[in-house]
Design a protein around this nucleic acid. Structure first.
Lengths: 245, 245
DNA sequence: GCCAGAGTAATACGTACGTATTATATATGT
DNA sequence: ACATATATAATACGTACGTATTACTCTGGC
């Protein structure tokens, strides 16, 4: 609670010194790299300090409070650009007048995929995101709930509107699963890209991205099968006990 | 290297005492529960010891060597049944004479989904698996490479044969992404199921499973889009430089 | 019933962590 | 140029970890 460890952002400080922002940038860059390589839980704050060239042991505490603060800083660094790009694409779609599902899927995938070419930690950002999906302490959905994310919300609404025939329960389940598909597909490709220094899986980037869009479209637009319809029908009759098979 | 910490399984010990197997079972059960709740890296071996009611501090070391040994024990506990079930389903499919893609997707999904009803750590097993996918120290693919997994290999071959029209690079990429879709979709549903004590997302289990099968089929069987075909075509002409858009 | 050995318990050592406290240096506003 | 608050450095404390070592207990085979 002392002044020395309070987050300078949260206070009423009128001035932000220039060397502080440089240190913050170096810490964030070191953290995202280490998190991507060794896992979020496999990195201590002291290791981040050392990797950032900080001889002090509590520089991370001073600037970000704790590990969650560092994670938020990493997300802040990258999501602004992603949000902007996503709004651009969605604006184009809405201006065109019709909600083409493939365009919406592109608005979902492309802003993320462009991070593959961001040399300032873009790939690490993608890998950290994939780790956060199922993380017990910092689940991605909760982290995003704490921040403004209008682009993703807008996209969610538009895609739901573009798939009016799918029952809502199924749509929700598919949307969640789509997150796993995208983030982990992207993170795997990102990892391999970093190791091979260019393409991965013998697939050029443009082909990979387009293929991911194809998969996203497929998951969203394929109608439920007759088997699923039958199960759905059966589950909606409360009288009949659903068998265990 | 002393005898006291050597894995009793790896030695030539003729006898295995009954209390030892009971302790091993309790340790594995405690470990899978803790791993699922707090994350693999968020649990120390000592915590596993305590949760297993072991007053000794090095019981885990004695029985499993290290954390990777515990993970292998968890996988051993569950994969046997999954493998057996998967071979059953694949036998039926091959006996029928035709490779129906939906049946193959069921052979992929159902053996895992049935773990949702296994009260002996089935849900924890699914959540641990999802964590292992992108784990830096114990990546799931490497762990599986160290063990016999003929059911999954057989399934991989058969599904690839059932999708002859898709270019191989795209197929490989989709197969990897499918892992993220399945394991994380399953783990999310498992987690919610455990919290709500029954169904999750207002979706009964049978509907959820059938919906996952639909998604898997969709990802596997949807042909590449004209956009992807164009990118693929362009990438196969080595003369022309691929633009960055 | 007894004994060798597997299994469990108790204890200790070195290391690294997060956190707190204090001191020094330096950039910014006046 | 100076004073002040901010930023960085240095150091210390308590805790928990993995590991190793030693001693005790009890099972299982004879």
């Amino acid at each position: 609670m002392s002044a020395a460890v309070s987050n300078p952002d949260s206070g009423l400080n009128s001035t932000v010194r220039s060397d502080a922002v440089a240190t913050r940038l170096r810490i964030v860059a070191a953290a995202e790299r280490l998190f991507a390589e060794r896992g979020i839980d496999g990195v201590s704050l002291q290791q981040i300090n050392r990797a950032a060239g900080q001889r002090n042991r509590s520089a991370v505490q001073y600037h970000f409070g704790n590990k969650e603060g560092v994670i938020h800083a990493i997300l802040d660094k990258h999501t602004a650009g992603i949000e902007r790009r996503r709004h651009e694409l969605l604006d184009e779609i809405e201006a065109s007048g019709k909600l083409e599902l493939r365009r919406l899927a592109e608005a979902l995938v492309i802003p993320l995929a462009e991070k593959l070419d961001d040399p300032d930690g873009g790939i690490a950002f993608l890998r950290v995101n994939a780790q956060l999906i199922g993380h017990p302490d910092f689940p991605l959905l909760e982290l995003h709930a704490q921040r403004v994310n209008r682009g993703a919300d807008r996209l969610h609404r538009l895609t739901a509107r573009a798939c009016p025939d799918l029952p809502m329960e199924l749509w929700m389940s598919r949307w969640l699963a789509l997150g796993g598909l995208l983030f982990h597909g992207m993170a795997d490709y990102a990892h391999l890209t970093e190791r091979n220094g260019g393409a991965a899986l013998n697939i050029p980037r443009s082909v990979f991205v387009s293929n991911m869009v194809d998969c996203a479209v497929a998951v969203m637009e394929v109608p439920q099968s007759p088997e699923t319809d039958a199960e759905l029908e059966r589950s909606r009759r409360p009288d009949e006990e659903t068998p265990h098979v």
